Structures are given as C-alpha cells and as structure tokens.
Amino acid sequence: MKEQSYCTFRLNNSIYGIENSYIEEVFALPELTVVSSPYRNLAGVVNLRGKILPVMDLNLVLGMPSPDYQITDSILVLRWEDSQVGIIVNEVYKEKTISPDQITTQLSNHRDVEGKDCQTIIADFSQRAGDILILNHPETWMGSIEIETILSKIPDNSPGDRFRLLTQESIFCPKATPEERIIFQERADNLKAEVTSQDLTDLKPISAIVLNDRFFGIDLAMVREFTDLSRVTPIPCCPKHIIGNMNLRGEIITLIDLRGFFHLPIDPILEEYKVMVVDFEGIVFGVIVTEVAESMLFLKPSEIMPLSTGSDAINDEYLQGVASYRENARAPQALRDIAILDLPKILLNGGLIVDEVV
C-alpha cells in the first residue's frame, strides 16, 4: 500500500486525521444559523457562497459533550459523492503523510475511543506519526445529510431567499461576548460572497501569534500545532533564547523564545503562554508565544508590504514584511500591524542550532 496524505486537526486534547481527498476547504468558524432538525449532531447551517452548508459538531458525533465554541475554532468542509458537510474543530494543522506501517487498528486503549460509535468513526491509530486518530470514510459515520429535510418547515409559497427564511431556533454560541459576536457575524457575511478558485489559490495562509503585545504572522505550512506550555527542562550551555526541552506526548521539543530577536522586552514566561510547534524541513522545535491570536487566516500577497525603515523600534532583520490585521475579540474594530516572520532565516542565521559539546 502507498503512503496516504491526511489533513490533521485538533479536537479537545486529541489529534485527528482524515484523508485529504475528502477536504474541500477550511475557514474560521462563522456565526451559524441554529435550526431544529432531525440531525441531533447538527450545530447549525451557514450560507457558503449562496449554498446552505450543514455544520456538524464533531464532539457530538463522537458521543462526547460539546464544549463552548471559541473564536479560534475552524470548520473543515468535507465532500464525498453528492454530500457536502462542515465539521467544527479546534485547530487545523498541516498535511501529514502516513505510511501503512505507521498505522495500527488497536484502538481500545486510547482515551478518546470508547463505545461502538467511536469504533465506527475512528478507523485507525498512528502512534508512530504522533498519536493521530484516523477517521473512517465520512459516508460510514456521517450518513446522508438532506438539505431539504432541514428546509422542510419552510412553506413552498414563502417569498424570497429560502436561506433568509430559516428560523433561528436558538442563539449560536450564547456565551460569546458582544465583540466575539461581531467577529462571528463578519465571517458569516464574508462567506456569502462568491469567490473564484483563482482567488483562493492566490491567498497565503498564515497563523497569527502574539509576542508580548506585538502581532506576528508565520507561514501556516511550517506550523504543526499549538499546545499548552508544560514542564520545561533547562538545557545547560545554551544561548538565552533557547529555554529548554518539553515532553509533548513522548516527543522531546526544544523551546525557543523569539522576543530577543525583535528587541522586545524579555518578560517572565507565564504558565498561560502557549507553544507553537514548528516543523521546518524536518527540524521540529517549539516557539513560546504569549497568545495565539488566530490559528489560521488568509492574506493576499499584495497585502504584505515592505517594512518602513525607522518607523518602529522592532528589529526587522528577520521579517518578510507587514500587513494589516483585524485584531481578535479584544478590539474587533481595530486594525493592527502584523509582522510576517522569516522563520527560515531565524533558524539558519539566528543561532538556533546548537552544536556545543557539554
């Protein structure tokens, strides 16, 4: 059997994978229209460029309780045969190629595989590729989602757009702040517009992170995942920007503090900080970040502008340029500069590779 490419993503504390051939597109979670339907796992529907997309809560599909949705969640759009369905996930990671010898069907001891429903949904487990639970073909566990069933309550003689006539049975994400609601609504409005395939291929996917109070972007292709900061073991005889090692599900990850490269204050590292796990040409390390502003967003290359000299105290030696970014829930109307990291240059020229003998 040949190697297979999988789209990998995080749901709660587990990493899942699904064959890339089922993935049609990915976008940040928008406001969903919540409707009554016979599908108990349906989180709601969204107008995706004029078509109604049902969105399922994968936690409910797996038989787990559904946590509150977050502004950083994403939707994976799956397509098979004539079906198109979205699933809500916490973070989307880059494509991963897994060979058959890395996969096992021994699922019984994994904490997230309990009961017959999970055994139907989760086909395999790849421990050697990083503890990835591989989802079965969606037609075996999703079934057929009939849009007409969702719309069946709307009388045929109702005037106007049928999507607008969907009744909001309850409030989407009731615990969201007013600022978060603005962001959810803006995303939903943007999805209504027609987008050509050329538009999509021209977009550059990045992750937005915060170091102290500054926003930085990094090419999404280099980002493997985001995770919590846990116990760090210091490494002797290392530069001050190499913080130490962290055990991530049995894999030892070296942690880097990039703030010194940009002349930012080196404030104490707090336990609520996050770790961005980066994979660059097989070199895996973790970057400590103050906050993950957005795990995935898209920029047009034309939006990335050269840095103006002398306009800021930040060191631009390791930056590709700067773009405008609409800040997250803290100030949804504010546009901030987001500096695009040149991470390969930092890795190759910034002294991140240590070859000293202790």
Rank of each mutant, 00 (worst) to 15 (best):
Y325R: 01
L32R: 02
A208Q: 01
V34E: 06
I340V: 10
E225R: 08
P301N: 08
D131L: 05
D199T: 11
K51C: 02
A208F: 00
I243L: 12
I71Q: 12
V354P: 03
L165I: 00
I75H: 05
I235S: 10
D267N: 14
Y6H: 06
S66L: 12
L32I: 04
M1T: 12
S99N: 13
G115S: 10
S36K: 15
P301Y: 01
I218Y: 05
R10V: 01
C237D: 11
N41M: 05
T8A: 02
P138S: 08
V284N: 09
H263A: 10
S83E: 15
I209L: 14
R164G: 05
H241C: 09
D257H: 07
V292M: 15
G115I: 04
P67H: 10
E95Q: 13
S207M: 06
P268Y: 07
K175H: 11
G321H: 08
D101H: 09
F163N: 05
I288H: 00
P268G: 13
G50A: 10
I98V: 15
L255C: 01
T72W: 04
I340T: 03
G63A: 10
P178D: 08
L335N: 14
F226H: 13
A331N: 15
E194K: 12
V289K: 04
L229H: 11
E317Y: 09
L58S: 11
G86W: 03
A193T: 13
I346D: 03
D156G: 00
C238Y: 12
E180G: 06
E271Y: 12
L255N: 03
N90I: 05
R187F: 00
E179H: 02
C173W: 01
I346Y: 06
L76K: 12
P239K: 11
Q198R: 13
F184T: 07
A221F: 03
E272V: 01
I23M: 08
E180L: 01
L203K: 14
L258R: 09
M1K: 08
E194C: 03
L335D: 10
C173R: 04
G351M: 07
V322A: 12
E281A: 08
E327Y: 14
I338P: 07
K51M: 06
N245E: 15
V354K: 12
V284W: 02
L297D: 04
F215M: 09
L200M: 07
M276I: 08
F262H: 05
K240A: 12
V287K: 04
K204M: 07
Q333I: 04
P174G: 10
K300E: 14
A28Q: 09
I145N: 03
A339L: 13
K192D: 04
E31Q: 11
N247C: 15
N245Q: 15
R162C: 07
T201L: 12
L211F: 10
S207Y: 04
N315F: 07
H110E: 13
L299P: 11
I88G: 08
Q320F: 07
D199P: 01
L200E: 08
M56R: 02
I171H: 09
D101V: 02
G250T: 08
E317M: 10
P100G: 06
L335C: 07
L319Q: 10
A208L: 00
M246V: 02
T309M: 11
G130I: 05
R10T: 06
W141M: 00
